[in-house]
């Protein structure tokens, strides 16, 4: 199994920074997500997680620190969370930390968003403020 590292960029579209490490079990997704082809970008990340679950079988920590994502990215995030939910239901250990900027005037919108992700997937997501 290989680690995934993608450096984020901010151009015509925005690529998030991805850092998935199978040795530590820590998966990071941060920056901004607005892609030309959302599924093409997220599909390998989903495959990586499925593979980790199948072969490594250890705890998986997902740290999300996205300052912006469009709705089609949010759909792929749901797909990732659903994979993790299934893992949890099969006795896998999953920790999800969602970082939000509590200095942001609209942070309540972001908390609402996190709550929606929890309701939709039935997963527990830790809200972690930063600024």
């Amino acid at each position: 199994m290989k680690n995934i590292y993608i450096k984020g960029s901010h151009g015509a579209h925005f690529t998030p920074t991805v850092n998935f490490n199978y040795e530590t079990g820590i998966c990071e997704l941060k920056g901004e997500s607005y892609l030309e082809d959302t599924i093409k970008f997220y599909y390998p990340l989903m495959e990586w997680i499925k593979n980790y679950i199948k072969t490594i079988k250890k705890e998986l920590v997902l740290n999300v620190k996205l300052t912006y994502f469009n709705t089609s990215s949010s759909k792929c995030i749901i797909d990732i969370l659903n994979i993790l939910k299934a893992y949890e239901q099969n006795e896998g250990k999953v920790v999800i930390n969602w970082y939000y900027n509590d200095k942001d005037e609209e942070y309540e919108d972001e908390l609402e968003e996190i709550e929606d992700f929890m309701i939709e997937t039935g997963l527990n997501i830790n809200n972690v403020p930063y600024n």
Binding site: D37, T38, I39, T71, S72, S74, K75, C76, I78, D79, D116, I119, E120
Partner: peptide, 17 residues
């Protein structure tokens, strides 16, 4: 929104959310 987001994936960039 949650309902739309949980529709099966497939449509490129879709979701209609």
């Amino acid at each position: 929104k949650r309902k739309l987001r949980n529709l099966p994936p497939g449509i490129k960039g879709g979701g209609n959310i």
